[in-house]
Amino acid sequence: MIGKQRTSPVVPIDQVPPADTSPYRPVVLVVDDESAIADTVTEILSRSGYAAMTAYDANDALEMALLTPPELLLTDVVLPGMSGIELAITIKRIFPDCKILLFSGQASTLDLLASAKNDGHHFTLLTKPVHPEELLARVAGSLKHRETHAGATAG
């Protein structure tokens, strides 16, 4: 089987990987104004079988979400313009089933989160830096219910 690291476009016919028998690839929307973080997180999620999309601000993220509804929104809290929490609340209004994971490296976000909680919005906050394996576990955990549900429907 061909190694993932090879990029040659020419693949011998006997080495062509079998068709993906599991078409279910949860759509995860990754939002961070630090493009290096957004890009690497997207890459990590893609390698783990998610259909990950990247946005660098909340407006772009909303546009993308309207085109491809996400099953999970993974967003930084402090973003230019609309904050990650406002984005999460908006996405939740449009797609009530969308799961939300917030991540942030700023202590001040705890205050923002507390204020959202007072308004009845409960979000999980991951504190940066988040190790990729922990991030993957959290994403999988958030989508668990959905996957089980999807599996049952498919079966």
Binding site: E34, A36, I37, T40, V41, E43, I44, G105, Q106, K128, P129, V130, H131, P132
Partner: peptide
């Protein structure tokens, strides 16, 4: 420090 650290960890 957080942002570069997150990026380095991911890379």
């Amino acid at each position: 420090i957080n942002s570069p650290l997150e990026t380095i960890t991911n890379l």
